[in-house]
């Protein structure tokens, strides 16, 4: 009897990575897609608020054309785009069972994301020193709110990537958990597509 109970307990505590589903598709992945769909509304609100407010500045007040540094932001955008490439390499390497490759690509993606955030911090500092604070005018408020929210999302993504990296180092991230990497990858690509929209509408549209 005791042996049977012990065997049962061992069976229940054994590491398993079955995909919980009541619909035929993974619940976690479905939840991430629903979450990303709802995030569209958050960023849609911030982007449309920026569009509405960017021209609402007084005469002689500091505006987009006075502060934007397009070459610098273009390089930042390129860095974030390439981090999406390294993220898909992270997913494909874990699917293949290449754990070392997975760790390398996760770390590279996090490093590229950190470079992007560092660029954003530099940009904010430069804008502030040029006289554009959060409360300077409606342009400043909506610009910092939009790009700040995006930067916070990238930062959360970096934390999740580093968590995966640590899990991998501890031996808790094998091919059986490839879907976890894929789901965090979806979040990462989402912050990338949001930046694609922000870069065009905020920085490149005629001021």
């Amino acid at each position: 009897m005791a042996d049977t109970m012990a065997a049962e307990a061992a069976t229940h505590s054994a590491p398993r990575e079955e995909h919980r589903t009541s619909t035929g598709i993974s619940n976690e992945k479905l939840a991430m897609w629903v979450f990303l769909g709802s995030e569209c509304l958050l960023f849609g609100g911030l982007i449309s608020t920026y569009m509405f407010n960017k021209g609402r500045i007084g005469p002689g007040d500091i505006g987009p054309a006075d502060v934007f540094d397009i070459p610098f932001t273009s390089v930042s955008s390129f860095v974030l785009l390439m981090s999406s490439l390294t993220m898909v390499f992270a997913v494909s390497s874990i699917v293949r069972g290449d754990l070392r490759g997975n760790r390398i690509w996760l770390a590279t993606t996090a490093a590229l994301g950190a470079t992007f955030v560092a660029g954003q911090v530099y940009e904010f500092t430069a804008f502030y020193s040029e006289g554009l604070g959060f409360t300077t005018n409606l342009f400043g408020s909506s610009f910092y709110a939009l790009t700040g929210f995006h930067g916070a999302h990238v930062t959360i993504g970096i934390i999740m990537l580093m968590s995966l990296f640590v899990m991998s180092l501890r031996g808790n991230l094998g091919p059986e958990r490839a879907e976890k990497v894929e789901i965090i990858g979806l979040y990462w690509h989402f912050v990338d597509i949001v930046w694609i929209v922000i870069f065009t509408i905020v920085y490149l549209f005629p001021q």
Partner: peptide, 10 residues
């Protein structure tokens, strides 16, 4: 990797 279906929900 068409055969690499890792049961990622669909």
């Amino acid at each position: 990797h068409a055969s690499d279906e890792h049961a990622s929900g669909g």
